[in-house]
Computed example of a mutant assay.
Amino acid sequence: MKIEFKRLDHVMLCIPVGTENEARKFYGEVLGLRELTDLGYVLPKGAMWFEIGDVQLHIRAESIQHYSERHPAFEITNIRNAQEILESHGITIKYESLIPDRIRFSFRDPFGNRIEFLEML
């Protein structure tokens, strides 16, 4: 017997309490994600849900203690364009170790969450 995984459903990131409007601006405007607001039910614990292809990004405010290397990695197309958009908003790009079949970099959102973007070659 084994666990049979179907797909990644969502990734949850945390933000400091009181920064919800800043999160909506960053994820909705800077990254261009669509916030899921008309689900027919209230989201738990004041969470925000955004759509990324067929995966959801869940954001919830909580007390954040320190930075972590934990992160979601999102495959995208036109990674250079994404880099330019992020840098135009003053976001620092960190180039990651080389992996032969992909181009990748990471960055921190305004709340310290690490996010990786990658493009398959």
Rank of each mutant, 00 (worst) to 15 (best):
Ala47Trp: 05
Arg102Met: 11
Glu62Asn: 06
Ala61Val: 04
Pro100Ala: 08
Lys45Ala: 09
Gly53Asn: 10
Glu75Val: 08
Met48Thr: 01
Asp54Tyr: 10
Asn81Val: 13
Val55Asp: 00
Glu96Thr: 08
Ile76Met: 12
Ala82Asn: 05
Gln65Trp: 13
Leu57Val: 03
Gln83Thr: 10
Leu57Ile: 14
Leu36Met: 06
Leu86Glu: 08
Leu39Cys: 05
Ala73Ile: 10
Gln65Arg: 11
Asp38Trp: 11
Glu75Tyr: 06
Phe50Thr: 00
Thr37Ala: 09
Ile76Tyr: 03
Glu87Leu: 10
Arg34Cys: 14
Ala61Leu: 01
Phe50Leu: 04
Ala61Met: 02
Arg102Gln: 05
Glu69Asp: 14
Lys45Leu: 03
Ile79Tyr: 03
Gly40Thr: 00
Gly90Val: 05
Gly53Thr: 12
Asp54Pro: 02
Ala82Thr: 11
Glu51Cys: 02
Ile99Cys: 06
Trp49Cys: 01
Ile76Asp: 03
His66Phe: 13
Glu96Ser: 15
Leu98Trp: 03
Asp101Cys: 04
Leu43Val: 01
Glu96Lys: 03
Glu35Val: 12
Gly90Thr: 04
Pro100Lys: 08
Ala61Tyr: 03
Gln65Phe: 00
Asp54Gly: 11
Ile76Pro: 12
Trp49Arg: 03
Glu69Cys: 15
Ile52Phe: 06
Glu51Gly: 06
Gln56Arg: 06
Gln65Leu: 10
Gln83Phe: 01
Ile59Asn: 08
Ile91Pro: 09
Val42Gly: 04
Ile85Cys: 11
Val42Ile: 12
Leu98Ser: 11
Ser97Gly: 15
Ile99Arg: 08
Ile85Phe: 12
His58Ile: 01
His58Phe: 01
Ile93Gly: 07
Ala61Glu: 07
Leu39Trp: 05
Ile59Lys: 09
Arg60Phe: 08
Tyr41Asp: 02
Pro44Cys: 02
Glu87Gly: 07
Val55Asn: 07
Arg102Gly: 02
Glu62Ala: 07
Glu69Ile: 15
Tyr67Met: 14
Gly53Tyr: 12
Asp54Leu: 07
Phe50Gly: 00
Glu35His: 01
Gly40Glu: 06
Leu39Tyr: 05
Arg102Ser: 00
Thr92Met: 14
Ile99Trp: 00
Gly40Cys: 04
Gln56Lys: 09
Ala73His: 12
Ser63Arg: 11
Thr37Val: 01
Gln56Ser: 13
Arg34Glu: 14
Glu87Cys: 10
Glu51Thr: 04
Ile93Asn: 00
Pro100Glu: 14
Val55Trp: 00
Met48Val: 01
Arg34Asp: 10
